[in-house]
Amino acid sequence: MTGTVYKSTGSWYTVKSSQGDFIECRMKGKFRIKGIKSTNPIAVGDIVDYELEETSDTVTGTIHKIHERKNYIVRKSVNLSHQMHIIASNIDTVFLLVTINNPPTTPNFIDRFLVTAEAYGIETVLVFNKIDTFDDPTLDEQLYLQHIYENIGYKCLRVSAKESKGIDKLKEMMIGKVSMFSGHSGVGKSTLVNALEPTLHLKTKTISEASKQGQHTTTFAEMYDLSFDARIIDTPGIKGFGIVDMEKEEISGYFPEFFKLKEQCKFNNCLHKDEPNCAIKKALKKDEIAWSRYNSYLKILEGDDENYRTDSYDEDRKASDETRK
């Protein structure tokens, strides 16, 4: 039998059959997926083959095959630095939820996520949430970020799950697709899913006033069928986003604005740091490339995974200013 993984708890997997039934399944032995050193060989969104096992009081399943994935998105494992954790697979669109100060989402985090999505061929839309809470300085910061990413070519939405602003436009982009919501804890992923589909009643928590950080409400990634012909994968909040399996020479290719110019560099293997006649550095000096983006590139290039989450947007901006000098 064949089905789709809707929930993963690490040991048990909820699989939806082609007939619409949900079966609790386990893995049959260990899966070794070619080319992937992952802490979780089966992820939400996977298409799997399984066999039913009946006992006196219940019916469960055993997964024995994972179908080839059209894509997947990964991050560095929290505890195992040389392995990756597959967040979800077979995704049409990722909606990365961004909040300016409640909690802060830094450009460095955004860029790391976008680079990984580019590398695995997944469309990403930036969703600036909680616009109902903005004062004038916060609005300026949000519009500045939106300007940067729209100029690069990324789609951006401004929403308020609390006041249902931008919800209809978001729904339009999700119809007929498998979408994933991602972002830090507290950016409002579960609240936004509830705004899209109030009958789900997903658990939500308020932001910690002491740390201005979110509290985990989603423990495991889980897919939901929505009433408007869409499916959404809600994921646990991500503190940081470590980059995995990228050679230094290929990183700039996942920055679309760098990729357009890199052939104009004097050297084919230009890393856009100290090399002469670098097209990216020339564009940077003309403010044709955002300094925050270049700063993120340098951090990824240098393997700065220990500090990939800063405490505030201002710290990322300060680092960009220092780089510019």
Rank of each mutant, 00 (worst) to 15 (best):
G121R: 03
K171H: 07
N79M: 05
K299F: 08
Y144V: 06
M223N: 06
I110A: 01
K65C: 02
T116V: 11
K70M: 03
F109C: 07
E249F: 04
I86N: 05
L170P: 05
S77Y: 02
E197D: 04
N129Q: 03
F109Y: 15
Y120T: 10
D305I: 14
I86M: 13
L157D: 03
Q215T: 10
K299G: 10
G45V: 01
P198L: 11
E302C: 03
R293S: 11
H67I: 00
D135C: 05
F113T: 08
R309K: 10
P103D: 00
I122Y: 04
V193Y: 00
I167P: 01
Q83C: 06
A88R: 13
I36F: 14
I289W: 08
S81I: 13
K30M: 04
V159C: 15
Y297F: 05
T4A: 07
F22L: 09
N79V: 06
W12R: 09
F95G: 04
H272G: 00
K266I: 05
T310P: 02
K30W: 05
E54G: 04
G183V: 09
L170Q: 04
Y308L: 11
L202Q: 12
L261Q: 00
D305G: 14
Y50E: 04
T116Q: 09
A221D: 00
K203G: 02
F31C: 09
L200C: 02
V159G: 08
D316K: 06
T4Q: 15
I47T: 13
V125C: 12
L192F: 13
K285W: 02
N71S: 06
F259W: 04
T204S: 03
K286F: 07
L97I: 15
K273R: 09
Y254A: 07
G45F: 01
E209H: 14
V98T: 07
H85I: 03
H147K: 15
T9H: 06
A319D: 14
T204A: 03
R158F: 10
E257R: 11
Q19E: 15
A43H: 09
T199M: 11
G240I: 03
S320L: 02
G303L: 04
S77H: 01
G153S: 04
G183E: 01
V59L: 11
L226K: 00
H82Y: 10
T217Y: 08
T105L: 05
Y308H: 12
N268Q: 13
T55L: 03
T310Y: 13
S11M: 12
L202F: 10
K266D: 06
I47S: 11
T105S: 15
D311W: 07
M84E: 15
K130G: 04
L226S: 00
I175N: 05
G153T: 07
